[in-house]
């Protein structure tokens, strides 16, 4: 019997692991390292692209639909909060089973960590020229694709012509505020930027108004549209923009003392088994056509040669506060602990 058992176990092991190993391309396909080397025929033969993104699904769907129409290549995507995206990429890499061809997250610190782990592929793209130096990795492993301004979003029925127009103003709206962060701390980077510029006291005062915490910016908009709360702080400008354009009773403003900006960035994964399709998609995403769709969805492009969204203020007229990604990445754990102590609840630390 012991012989049988051993053979059972062996058979089991062989049967169990063979398909997983055989079906996966372990070799790191080199592929193009420069936009000029992309072979469209090869890309089409690779068949599909897998994207991990934290961008709003409506914009992702629009970008993908146009890409698929042009090249006949399907885009499959995983959408989560920015920490979910980074977390999944890192965990899959740990397991040696990376699924994504391209990653995009509103969390440069996360992309820096991926670079540090050697997961991202240096890539030379013509999109680098119209993008400011500080908004891309000098080694070309990641590049900013969008800038999200963290605005004050409010219900016009509640505030009329006198909305809270500074961060300090908000602290008076006790019981009427809403903000977002998932349990893994998606909202943390912008809160940190706000705190490091205006002091942690401001956050304490905001927390004292007992703000409602929701999971995503999309839900902030709904809570405001329904009038459950009156004002949202550090809301994504594109979501506020969309809500207003849809004729909902909301509006938004950029506080004059400064608006935290959050940089969304993307990069290609070294482990990709579909390097041509991935690079082609990357070029589409970063190129004028993809960025135009992004802007149509209310996002500001990171490219200097692309206009701001229709009906919105040019970035040059807004006082932007750039986040310190390096500092955030270094002290993430302490920052999350401090946010948990200030606001309560789960921040993933």
């Amino acid at each position: 019997m012991s012989i049988e058992r051993r053979s059972v176990l062996k058979g089991l092991a062989a049967a169990g692991t063979a398909p997983f190993i055989a079906g996966h391309a372990w070799s790191q396909a080199a592929g193009p390292s420069d936009a000029g080397q992309i072979d469209v025929e090869k890309a089409k033969a690779e068949g599909k692209v897998v994207l991990y993104t934290s961008l709003d699904t409506q914009i992702v769907d629009a970008i993908n639909a146009a890409f698929t129409k042009k090249y006949g290549i399907e885009v499959q995507y995983f959408r989560g909060g920015s920490s979910d995206v980074t977390g999944k990429v890192l965990a899959e890499a740990d397991a040696g089973r990376s699924q994504a061809d391209m990653v995009d997250a509103s969390d440069v610190a996360g992309l820096m960590l991926m670079k540090e782990r050697g997961l991202l592929k240096p890539f030379k793209s013509p999109a680098m020229d119209p993008i400011a130096k500080e908004l891309r990795d000098p080694d070309g492993t990641w590049i900013a694709d969008r800038l999200t301004q963290a605005v004050i979003h409010y219900n016009t029925k509640e505030f009329g012509s006198a909305p809270p127009s500074t961060w300090e103003d908000l602290t008076k709206a006790s019981g009427r505020l809403v903000y977002f962060s998932s349990s893994s701390g998606d909202g943390a980077p912008r809160l940190y930027t706000l705190a490091s510029n205006f002091g942690w006291d401001l956050l304490k005062k905001l927390a004292a108004t007992k703000p409602l915490r929701v999971q995503t910016p999309q839900v902030i908009a709904q809570v405001l549209e329904r009038g459950e709360r009156g004002a949202g702080f550090l809301q994504n400008d594109n979501i506020a923009w969309r809500s207003k354009r849809q004729g909902k009773p909301t509006d938004y403003l950029f506080p004059a003392e400064g608006v935290p900006t959050e940089v969304g960035a993307c990069g290609l994964l070294k482990s990709s088994a579909r390097p041509h399709a991935a690079a082609l998609y990357y070029e589409w995403w970063m190129g004028p056509e993809g960025q135009a769709i992004l802007v149509k969805g209310g996002k500001y492009s990171s490219r200097t040669d692309v206009e701001p969204p229709e009906g919105s203020v040019p970035l040059s007229k807004i006082k932007l506060i750039a986040p310190d990604h390096v500092e955030y990445k270094k002290n993430k754990s302490q920052i999350l602990d401090r946010l948990a102590a200030t606001f309560g609840g789960e921040w993933g630390n």
Binding site: S83, D84, T86, G87, L90, A91, G110, L113, S183, S184, G185, R213, L336, F343, G344, G345, E346, W347, G348, N349
Partner: peptide
């Protein structure tokens, strides 16, 4: 803002 053990476990693995 109430954390339980299962949601806490999810957050310790879900964040990076």
């Amino acid at each position: 803002q109430i954390v339980f053990l299962p949601t806490r476990i999810y957050a310790t693995i879900g964040s990076y």
